[in-house]
C-alpha cells in the first residue's frame, strides 16, 4: 500500500471511529458523576481492612491477583531484556571512557543521591498510608541509583550497582509475591487471602499482608528497572556489534 493510500484509509477509518466514539461519550455518565458503586464498596472494604491508602488496599489486597499479573509482566520484561539484549558472539566490547562532568553536576549528584534513596525508601515504606507504594518508590530508587551515572560516570554506577544480586533480588521478590499468596492456601483459606493481623489504622504496620507485598513489589520494581536499564546502558556504552548491513552468518567459534 502506498503511503498516500495508507493515510487516506486512515482518515476514513478515523472519521468513523471519531463519530461513533463521540456518540458513545454522550451516553456516558457526565464527568464527575456521583455514582461509583464499585468504588464505594472498595472504600468500605479498605476501611474494614484498616488500610489508609485505598489504592494500596485494592492493589495489594482486594485485587491483588491483578498486581500479581502486573508484577509478572515486569518480571517477564526483565527476562525478555535478558534474552533480547544478550551479548551474542557478534558483539565485541569496548571500554567506556570516563567523561568530564561539570564540577557542579558532580557535587549536586553526590548530594542528591542519598536524598533520592531516602525519598524512594520513604515512598515504598508509606505505601499503604500515603500516595505511593512499591511501584512508585521502586522507580524512584532505581532512578536515584542512576544519578551516579549522571554525576560521575558509568564506572561509578557499576561500582555501586551489584548487578548479579539485583538480578536475583528481582526474581526472589517476584517469587515472594507468589509465595505470599500460597500462605493463604497453606493456612487453609483462599489464595492471596490477607491472613496477617490487620494492625491499627493509619500506622506503618497496618493492613496485614499489604505492607509485606508492598515491600516485595518495591524490591522487585527497583531491581527490575535497574537491571533493564543496565542492559540498555550496556548496549549504548559498551557493545559495538557489526556495523549493520545484511545480517551475517555467525562466525565459527
Amino acid at each position: 500500500m502506498s503511503r498516500t493510500a495508507r493515510i487516506r484509509l486512515f482518515w476514513g477509518a478515523a472519521a468513523v471511529i471519531a463519530a461513533l466514539y463521540t456518540m458513545a461519550c454522550l451516553r456516558l455518565p457526565h464527568f464527575g458523576t456521583a455514582v461509583h458503586p464499585y468504588g464505594d464498596r472498595a472504600v468500605a472494604a479498605t476501611l474494614r481492612q484498616r488500610t489508609a491508602n485505598t489504592i494500596s488496599s485494592i492493589n495489594f489486597d482486594q485485587r491483588a491477583f491483578d498486581t500479581l499479573g502486573e508484577e509478572s509482566i515486569l518480571f517477564g520484561a526483565v527476562l525478555g531484556a535478558t534474552a533480547l539484549l544478550r551479548r551474542t558472539s557478534h558483539d565485541h566490547n569496548t571500554r567506556p571512557r570516563p567523561v568530564r562532568v561539570l564540577p557542579s553536576t558532580r557535587l549536586f549528584g553526590a548530594l542528591l543521591l542519598p536524598v533520592a534513596l531516602l525519598t524512594g525508601i520513604y515512598i515504598v515504606a508509606h505505601g499503604q498510608l500515603s500516595p505511593g507504594g512499591g511501584f512508585q518508590g521502586g522507580v524512584v530508587l532505581a532512578t536515584a541509583l542512576h544519578l551516579a551515572y549522571v554525576a560521575a560516570d558509568y564506572r561509578a554506577l557499576q561500582r555501586i550497582r551489584p548487578r548479579e544480586l539485583l538480578d536475583q533480588a528481582d526474581a526472589v521478590a517476584a517469587g515472594a509475591f507468589t509465595v505470599l499468596g500460597l500462605a493463604g492456601l497453606v493456612a487453609g483459606v483462599a489464595y492471596l487471602q490477607n491472613v496477617l493481623p490487620l494492625g491499627t489504622f493509619n500506622t506503618l504496620s497496618s493492613g496485614g499482608l499489604v505492607p509485606v507485598i508492598n515491600a516485595a513489589v518495591g524490591i522487585e520494581v527497583a531491581s527490575g528497572v535497574i537491571v533493564v536499564l543496565a542492559y540498555f546502558l550496556d548496549q549504548t556504552l559498551f557493545a559495538t556489534g557489526p556495523a549493520g548491513g545484511a545480517f551475517r552468518k555467525k562466525a565459527e567459534r
Partner: peptide, 11 residues
C-alpha cells in the same frame, strides 16, 4: 489520583 500521578512521574 496522586498514586497514579506518582508512577506517571517515575515512568
Amino acid at each position: 489520583a496522586p498514586d497514579v500521578a506518582l508512577s506517571q512521574l517515575g515512568v
